[in-house]
Write a protein that binds this DNA or RNA. Structure first.
Length: 336
DNA sequence: GACAGACCCCTGTTACTGCC
DNA sequence: GGCAGTAACAGGGGTCTGTC
């Protein structure tokens, strides 16, 4: 057992992705990058599912897994090597000699750790039969499992992994995202099955929409898809905006909406003294979590009508982010 | 208009601490 | 030992302000 988790610096920033919530957002992204570099107009794209798990960074030296870390703030994460060693899908060794150039001695890949839906259900079934508390959703269960101080507890959780990026290497690596995925697969890394290559943006958008339609029948939870410029050199040349690389965009699924009862309104005092109202709600399930409170910090901007305590209100939640109230459904006073 | 950075907020999980 | 409360971590969108 560990006493605590040691902080580790990533060899390169582990970036997030800019989001688009509709096809217009995706096209606007492409126009922005085309204005920076006309070559993007003729680029091909890779579409990947955006798995709802947690990012892990895996380091190999001479083909041996030596360190695994959480994403943390993108620059510094936590060393969870002992826990990741218990994940059966994670290769502890990779071949150093494939057809072609030798696999770099120093090789760092990025992936997503998560729990398959059927494994999550089986885990809860076992817990229920044992009279123990069950888990509410796979993502937070996966996150909690990897933060166990005792790796034997992590080993008892059905974690798995998909890998999709080379974060750092001291030798040659594939020039395109599509080749990179095939390369990772050849090295023995688990890779998502629903990855596709497209010669134009329309085809890539169609693939994203198709993933959206399959969402509820997939073996694992996804909160969108990712469109990446296939040419990794070109994508790198486009640079970074804040913490988002310009060469890729996340196409998020439409926000889920539910209605519930507004029981009360509270006010939070932030650390700078800012007062922020929040809604206290009748508990309602949305996107795999039970929401009892929701922020009203943006209510002025998004709501067309006021709300009153006792109203039924519409609650919105995009992806796995914070839920917010978008307005009344039924006015408690007038009944409208 | 694009961008960077600050600031605001959520739930679920685990570890830790204090109390009974 | 059990329970409750707190802190830290995971996931990241939306808004505002200032700059270019």
């Amino acid at each position: 057992p560990l006493d605590r988790f040691v902080k580790v610096a990533h060899p390169a920033p582990i970036l997030s992705l800019a989001n688009a919530f509709d096809t217009n957002g995706v096209r606007a992204w492409l126009e922005r990058v085309v204005r920076m570099d006309e070559r993007v107009r003729k680029a091909s794209f890779v579409v990947e599912p955006k798995i709802d798990g947690l990012t892990v960074v895996l380091t190999y030296r001479n083909g041996v897994f030596v360190q695994g870390a959480t994403r943390g703030d993108g620059e510094i994460g936590e060393d969870i090597t002992a826990n990741l060693r218990t994940v059966k899908a994670l290769p502890l060794r990779i071949p150093v000699n494939l057809d072609g150039p030798r696999v770099p001695d120093y090789f760092v890949v990025r992936g997503e750790a998560f729990i398959m839906l059927k494994d999550f259900e089986a885990l809860n079934q076992r817990l229920q039969e044992a009279g123990e508390k069950t888990y509410l959703n796979p993502r937070n269960t996966a996150a909690g499992s990897l933060r166990q101080l005792d790796p034997s507890l992590t080993a008892s959780r059905p974690l798995t992994l998909y890998v999709y990026q080379i974060a750092a290497a001291d030798g040659p690596t594939p020039a395109t995202q599509w080749e990179l995925i095939q390369y990772l697969k050849a090295l023995g890394f688990p890779v998502a099955g629903e990855i596709s290559l497209h010669t134009d943006l329309d085809s890539a958008i169609a693939a994203c929409q198709s993933l959206g339609e399959k969402r509820d029948s997939m073996a694992y939870e996804i909160d969108g898809s990712v469109i990446k410029i296939n040419d990794l050199g070109l994508a790198a040349e486009l640079g970074i905006v804040g913490k988002d690389p310009r060469g890729a965009i996340a196409f998020k699924f439409p926000a889920r909406e539910v209605t519930t009862l507004l029981r009360d309104i509270g006010v939070n005092v932030g650390r700078t003294g800012v007062l922020t109202p929040y809604a206290i709600l009748e508990a309602v399930e949305i996107g795999g979590v039970v929401v009892k409170q929701a922020t009203l910090h943006n209510f002025d901007y998004i709501a067309e009508k006021d709300i009153r305590i006792g109203d039924r209100v519409m609650l919105k939640r995009a992806g796995d982010v914070i839920p917010y109230v978008i307005g009344p459904v039924v006015d408690a006073r007038s009944g409208d």
